[in-house]
Amino acid sequence: MTAEQFLSYFSPERFIKDLRARSKDGVLSEMSKVLAEDDDVRDPGLLLEMIRRRESLGSTGLGDGIAVPHGRSTAATQTKVVFARSKRGIDFAAMDGKPCRIFFLIVAPYEDNRHEYLPLLGKIVETASREDIRKKFMDVGSHEEFQEVVRGAIGE
């Protein structure tokens, strides 16, 4: 997956510089609402319900301050990602018990005909697992800066 392919799932509208939420459920709700403003995804209530259920299977807080809530829903017709950051950090029941500061919410359609969901999920985890990139994600002030970090991380 190239940097541009990776970036095609993100947008300036789906970039949250500093989350207002202070709880895990608040984060999921705030991010679902942003996602549901997109033309290809609707129904924030249904999305939130699906994402909460996925969390009940096991927290998507991977450790090192990263969380990647994700799932597939009939309410989505395209795969989309929201990037969000919390300066103060949020208890997300992560595996290492540390607060989460960087969040990627991924929602894919019920039928993933283009087989893009799992490769994208893998690429996000791989990118966010790098300590140098995590530090840069913590400092980005805009979607454009986020794009620059991704281009530097994934290469041309």
Partner: peptide, 27 residues
Amino acid sequence: DLELMIREAEDPTSKETEEALGFTMQG
């Protein structure tokens, strides 16, 4: 959506893929 999530959590291939990425699927 819920039945899909259950099927995926029960499916060895998708469960393995998620677990390899560091996610848990126990609930």
